[in-house]
């Protein structure tokens, strides 16, 4: 595999995870549990849309076929999207959103920490910029895991159930294929294998503080690297992409 093809693919993966999670969080706008939290979730959503835009711009440049970030966001189909399975899961109640956010934020925190050392200067710079935002996201979701876990009996049950339901999608975060292998060898990509232990330790530590149980090891869903998704992604894309696809010649 050529490096620039692998790099294009790699950028899509990073971008898509941010884009899809940003899209999900945007669904909360106007419906949050309290006004202050509505504003917080929208801020985080905006950060993700921002990351995605920058990464897709870079992907388009690496590809060199004259596509734009919007072409990549709006004119790829389900199987061409490479976001991790976790982020496409529906918002559910606030506990589910927070659980999904915390599991992903923790991953992204350690992953982007490593990515700042990338030999690809653009990726390293993007990672440095994003890392500050991710640090805040993790603080926000961690604080909420604590409050829901150690809040009322109801909130405890809700967040524990949410964690249990989402757990089977966490293995996918750390999968590797030849794209990862090649780019890790070149010093461009971060190694998900090296992030896994840190992720696990941090999650376990926070769950303990929040009086929550680590779910038992379970059979993991995988496939995001090949664009094999859960059924939810198709609906999300149908909604997100319908306008540019209906009017392919239009500029907005």
């Amino acid at each position: 595999m050529e490096i620039h093809k692998a790099l294009f693919e790699y950028c899509l993966r990073l971008a898509d995870s941010s884009l899809i999670l940003g899209q999900r969080l945007g669904e909360w706008c106007g419906h949050g549990p309290i006004l202050e939290e509505d504003i917080a979730l929208t801020n985080i959503s905006l950060d993700f849309v921002g990351h995605a835009t920058a990464l897709l711009q870079y992907a388009a440049k690496v590809e060199g076929k004259g596509r734009t970030e919007d072409d990549l966001a709006y004119h790829r189909s389900e199987r061409e999207f490479k976001n991790v399975l976790l982020v496409e899961q529906p918002n559910g109640d606030y506990a589910k959103t927070i659980a999904r956010q915390f599991l992903f934020d923790t991953f992204q925190y350690y992953y982007y920490q490593a990515l700042q050392e990338s030999k690809d200067e653009t990726l390293a710079a993007l990672a440095q910029k994003s890392f500050k935002e991710i640090t805040y996201h993790l603080r926000h979701s961690s604080q909420w895991v604590l409050r829901l876990g150690d809040g009322t009996a109801e909130s405890h049950e809700r967040i524990q159930n949410a964690i249990n339901d989402l757990w089977m999608f966490t293995g996918d975060l750390f999968d590797m294929d030849e794209v990862d292998a090649l780019l890790i060898k070149e010093g461009i990509a971060a190694d998900p294998g090296q992030v896994k232990q840190k992720w696990n330790d941090h999650v376990a530590e926070l769950f303990k503080k929040a009086t929550l149980q680590m779910p038992a090891p379970t059979y993991m869903q995988r496939g995001s690297r090949e664009g094999k998704h859960t059924e939810h992604l198709g609906y999300l894309l149908a909604e997100m992409q319908y306008l540019p696809r209906t009017f392919p010649d239009a500029k907005w």
Binding site: L35, E36, A40, N43, Q143, R147
Partner: peptide
């Protein structure tokens, strides 16, 4: 001003509301 259950969330909310 804003509403928050405790100091930590008050600071976080203030960041989101008043320093955008």
């Amino acid at each position: 001003s804003l509403h928050a259950p405790d100091a930590e969330l008050a600071i976080q909310n203030a960041r989101d509301v008043y320093t955008r």
